[in-house]
Design a protein around this nucleic acid. Structure first.
Length: 369
RNA sequence: GCCGCGUUGGUCAAGAGGUUAAGACGCCUCCCUUUCACGGAGGAAUCACGGGUUCGAGUCCCGUACGUGGUACCA
């Protein structure tokens, strides 16, 4: 190896004058134990003989990270340095740099945080797309590979949920509480309870956090997000009050913000497709006639409210000797398109008399085809 | 390979020598609901392995295995 340690002083001076490119390294001491106190790992030690003489200044004169952090932290009077555990191995280099340059007494407190792991080991940002879940907070296109990765935000995660799920990966308050707001985290966080080992990321649990936060969120807070979602889908969302009522009605069924679309489009537009297969097998003339009569009776209904609609429906069912339950599913398919959503009569009430009648009639023709 | 760090159900985890080893996610069963979801009740599943120390070990020590990070004139 050729360096100033193996070359004679004369040769070194000569090379310097010739302008030969060179780097500056840190010279590790021999037979020393470099140990320090990490806030998370506590006492950590390394044998100096096994640590490399890292490059501090590159041949082009630029400092490497090792030199840069130490100088930077000193200049910024950093008291606590938090970084990922991947830096633990190079900590002895930084410790020595502090000792040589600015004094150990000025060195910040170290905390090496546990890593977040993917399903098969370390979570690699480069592999973002293949996991089937986001790895970036927001949409990201790699400038080199031009590979696009959808972010948590765009996927439909609430910022509150994202912060919450991240906080619970590597830290635990020691209580049964799992749902924390930023304020609660700030109040309850303690470095002593940060874990030492990395945690595997579980997308199912991440979605659970989001679901919980959607349920916790007020309609008021959800409104701008959902409104934005519907705007991108070009759906006319009618008036604000109506929209908010809908949000309140379906939010407990939404895991991701994007779920609001399919969970509530039918409040604004008639369903494109109907799950007629759910109805056809048990369809008969009696039911056909029930819905035909229902239409005329609903047309004559004085007040269009939930109770009135329900009474009308049930009375006619009794008259026809059909169990109301057997008719509710078809009714739901007609109004919603599928087997989901809030109470049927609530839906009928909200979308209005005219729309309800239209949907029943158009569904009737589809079922008979 | 070498060095560091770590190891409680599938996953996140509580636990700081003596517990029937919390809780959550997911899964399954049931109740509620003649939809889906919410909610409620219950179930299956665990201390990596081997040695010590101790009256007693998930908890302390050693070894092995495994995982993870580092081992770049990247950060």
């Amino acid at each position: 190896m050729q360096n100033s340690l193996t070359l004679t002083n004369e040769v070194v001076q000569q090379y310097l004058q010739e302008g030969k490119p060179y780097v500056v390294r840190i010279k590790m001491p021999e037979n020393e134990i470099i140990s320090f106190n990490d806030m998370i790992h506590h006492e950590v030690s390394f044998e100096s003989n096994l640590v490399d003489d890292k490059v501090l200044l590159k041949a082009d004169g630029m400092p490497t990270y090792h030199l840069a952090v130490v100088v930077d932290d000193y200049l910024m009077k950093i008291s606590h340095a938090f970084r990922g555990e991947e830096w633990l191995s190079s900590a002895p280099v930084h410790i020595l740099l502090w000792k040589y340059l600015f004094g150990l007494e000025n060195m910040p407190q170290w905390a090496h945080l546990p890593l977040i792991l993917g399903p098969n080991g370390k979570l690699s940002k480069r592999d973002g797309a293949k996991y089937g879940f986001p790895v970036y907070a927001m949409n990201w296109t790699d400038p080199r590979s031009e590979e696009f990765t959808e972010g948590f935000k765009e996927k439909g995660f609430l910022p509150e949920a994202f912060i919450n799920l991240l906080a619970m990966l590597g830290w635990n308050g020691g209580t049964e509480q799992e749902l924390f707001s930023m304020e609660e985290l700030i109040a309850q966080f303690s470095i002593e309870r940060v874990h030492k080992s990395g945690a595997k990321f579980d997308y199912e649990k991440a979605k659970w956090f989001n679901h919980e936060w959607i349920k916790k969120s007020t309609t008021e807070a959800l409104y701008p997000l959902v409104k934005n979602l519907f705007e991108t889908k070009n759906v006319n969302t009618k008036n604000e009050d109506y929209f908010k009522t809908v949000i309140g009605l379906v939010k407990e069924r939404c895991t991701l913000v994007s779920d609001f679309y399919e969970q509530s489009v039918y409040f604004f537009e008639a369903p494109q497709t109907l799950d007629v297969e759910a109805v056809k097998p048990k369809w008969n003339e009696n039911k056909q006639s029930f819905f035909e009569i229902l239409c005329t009776q609903l047309t004559e209904l004085k007040a269009w409210d939930v109770i009135e609609i329900e009474n009308c429906f049930k009375n006619l069912a009794t008259e026809k000797s059909i169990k109301p339950g057997e008719l509710q599913l078809p009714m739901r398919i007609m109004l919603v398109g599928g087997k989901f959503g809030p109470a049927v009569f609530e839906i009928a009430h909200l979308i209005g008399k005219e729309e309800t009648l239209n949907r029943i009639q158009s569904a009737l023709t589809k079922i008979n085809n």
